[in-house]
Design a protein around this nucleic acid. Structure first.
Length: 498
RNA sequence: GGCCCCAUCGUCUAGCCCGGUCUAGGACGCAUCGUUCUCAGCGAUGAUACACCGGUUCAAAUCCGGUUGGGGCUACCA
């Protein structure tokens, strides 16, 4: 296991509770988790709820539940007991809204040391300022009006009750550079970087202050986050330097893009991570799929278990370009997963979907369901496709005459062949009514008649399934049982005779 | 507009750091064939990519420069 410095690797997943966790979040969490586990380190969860305007109640619960469902247990982070949030680990609290006094203390320290300053500009002035800058074709940024206020001026503003924020006093010379673990060296000119607001007028910190303070206090060693944060990294570096702290390592992951290009938003995804589960995807396939977005293991093996992903994960193998999100591979991966299951396990996992669709009830016998579900196991890509696929097993079909006949087959010929099948099937005992016995008996019948296989098997299969495309006739018959098989064949004969 | 990041099949990507073994590999998807009553599955085969222009070099997907294109940031959002 590689060890980074003297300290144990500690990484965090730090989402904002602004809605349900979507695939982008699941992917970021997974990248951090895999990195931690690969290096024998720790994985923490921190909730970045510093924007009261965007806060969505219940989203923290969704995040915690999604992580739990995905099997990404965090070593430290918030824990929900009913509606009460407690902390697991000794670097808490893990909700930023519960750390306000901490941020205040560090912001004050920055001001005291001349690395930050109170700013009294209101929203209107700021907007006006930006507008004018735009007209002059200048980059919009804070003009530094409050940068060098005297103590007396500050006192006067405060006495007058003007709302204030704390701004970072970004150095105006030199450059900031850092080595990104996936991109190499990145450099910015300091004078181009804005005096970022650190503390808002509601006394909440902005992301920039909170992330640096928390990552330091929580002893985070590696920040693995989205590429959209690259341009704010110099601000974070400045803070580390002002506090006299050692910055974390940085790895900026490529973004997931929507089909036409552009950042993937909640709207584009339509569904949350849990929504994909409701759609019938498995955890295994989803995690595997999401891991492959931007990362590729050495070698050609793309289907991996979580254990294999942990073993193989390497930031050096992360791609720099953004990945366009399409679900073809997810469907394939899910199909592989479904086919890898035993019939029993498949039926067990599929059952909740069938019950939820009110397709069967809780009383439906398990052994029967195993047989029915097995018929379509190799044919479906997600669990939600099972109900419509096996519906014919529950409801005897009334197929159209033209479908029952094979190719150009005459109805009379189909009737003849189905009638020949009847006694053969009747001859098989209930006890031996299985695929092998059925196949042997019926193939023998066809051989002795000297006809082509299709003119018997096709009408028989359609009689049983009602569909042009379906599982094979012997499989259906065996699952259906003798009585129902006989009955469906007779029904088909009647239809053909009308 | 400014700053930053990026650029290989339709998509996810390998290769790029350490130039020749790349007439560019794999996977998904697609097509065809085989197995087969059908569908699925499985097996085989096939089509499709180094954005462009220069430079360095005996040799460039790989190094350098530029162009173009895409993306991100440019909030008292994260």
């Amino acid at each position: 296991m590689p060890v980074f410095g003297k300290n144990k690797v500690r990484v965090r997943f730090a989402p904002s509770p602004t809605g349900e966790m979507h695939l982008g979040g699941l992917r970021m969490a997974l990248n951090n988790y895999l990195f931690a586990k690969h290096n024998g380190g720790e994985f923490l969860l921190r909730i970045e709820d510093t924007d009261q305007a965007r806060f969505v109640p219940g989203s923290m619960r969704n995040i915690i539940e999604t992580l739990k469902w995905a099997g990404m247990d965090y070593d430290e982070g918030p824990v929900l007991n009913g509606d009460v949030v407690t902390d697991k680990g000794d670097h808490g609290p893990y909700l930023q809204s519960r750390r306000l006094d901490i941020y205040k203390k560090y912001a004050d320290e920055l001001v005291a040391n001349g690395h930050a300053y109170p700013c009294f500009c209101n929203a209107e002035r700021l907007e006006q300022m930006r507008h004018e800058q735009e007209l002059r074709k200048e980059p919009p940024r804070y003009d530094g009006l409050c940068r060098n206020l005297s103590a007396a001026e500050i006192a006067a503003k405060r006495a007058a009750g003007v709302r204030e924020v704390i701004r970072l006093k970004m150095p105006q010379e030199g450059t900031s550079k850092f080595t990104d673990l996936v991109r190499g060296e990145i450099e910015f000119e300091n004078k181009l970087i804005d005096d970022q607001v650190l503390m808002k007028s509601d006394c909440f910190p902005t992301y920039h202050l909170a992330v640096v303070v928390d990552d330091h206090l929580m002893e985070i060693t590696h920040v693995i986050r989205g590429e959209e944060w690259i341009s704010s990294t110099p601000k974070h570096l400045a803070l580390y330097s002002f506090f006299g702290w050692k910055p974390t390592e940085y790895a900026h992951m490529p973004l997931i893009l929507k089909a036409g290009g552009g950042k993937l938003s909640k709207r584009d995804l339509a569904t949350s991570a849990m929504g994909y589960i409701a759609e019938g995807y498995s955890k295994e396939a989803l995690l595997n799929f999401v891991a492959l977005l931007g990362w590729h293991p050495k070698g050609d093996k793309e289907q991996m278990t979580i254990g294999e992903m942990i073993e193989n994960f390497d930031l050096a193998q992360v791609n720099k370009a953004g990945a366009i999100f399409t679900t073809d591979k997810l469907d394939w991966l899910n199909g592989l997963y479904i086919r890898s299951l035993s019939h029993e396990e498949f039926s067990k996992q599929a059952r909740p979907f069938l019950e939820k669709a009110e397709f069967i009830d809780a009383a439906f016998p398990e052994d029967k369901l195993i047989k029915y579900a097995a018929l379509e196991q190799a044919r479906i890509k997600k669990f939600t496709e099972l109900a419509p696929a096996i519906e014919f097993m529950f409801k005897a079909p009334l197929p159209d005459k033209t479908i029952i006949c094979w190719k150009k087959q005459e109805p009379a010929n189909a009737v003849k062949n189905l009638e020949a099948v009847l006694p053969v099937i009747d001859n098989i005992s209930e006890k031996e009514f299985n695929v092998q016995a059925l196949e042997a008996a019926i193939k023998a019948l066809i051989a002795s008649a000297g006809t082509s296989v299709g003119e018997t098997l096709w009408p028989m299969r359609v009689a049983l399934s009602g569909r042009a495309a379906s599982p094979g006739p012997f499989d259906i018959a065996a699952a259906l049982g003798k009585n129902e098989t006989m009955s469906r064949l007779q029904t088909a004969i009647k239809i053909l005779r009308t």
